[in-house]
Amino acid sequence: MTLYFLCLMLFCVGLYGVLRKRNIIKMIVGLGIMEYAMNLFFVLLGYRFHGRAPIDAKYQDILNMVDPLPQALVLTSIVIGLAVTALIISIAIRIYEKYGTFDITKIKKLKG
């Protein structure tokens, strides 16, 4: 249970970065940290004490494996996270070209 709590603390650090920082790159970094924390949380949920990796081998008990289902879904999630990060960064590069800054309080042309 302590591990779950540490994982939540990592998520909270990322959440603080997203909500509090004004630099777009810092917000992207916070988003990435939240994503890492969620992936780690799912894999932690599937861990089994004295389990082994979900790969078949001879003369081994098949039910002694860690849970492969969270691992398969997190594998999908990691790759999607890369796509999301690349998309956000391309938007940030465009914002920098247009406004010359990463500071979100200086980007004022969208204000009504």
Binding site: I28, V43, R52, V66, Q71, V79, L82, T85, I89
Partner: peptide, 24 residues
């Protein structure tokens, strides 16, 4: 945590992510 496939994928994705972030 006994997830070797995830470790490999995370390594590759992390390197790509770092390259993109440094480019930005």
């Amino acid at each position: 945590l006994k997830a070797p496939d995830l470790a490999i994928t995370q390594l590759v994705v992390e390197i790509l992510c770092l390259i993109i972030l440094i480019r930005a």
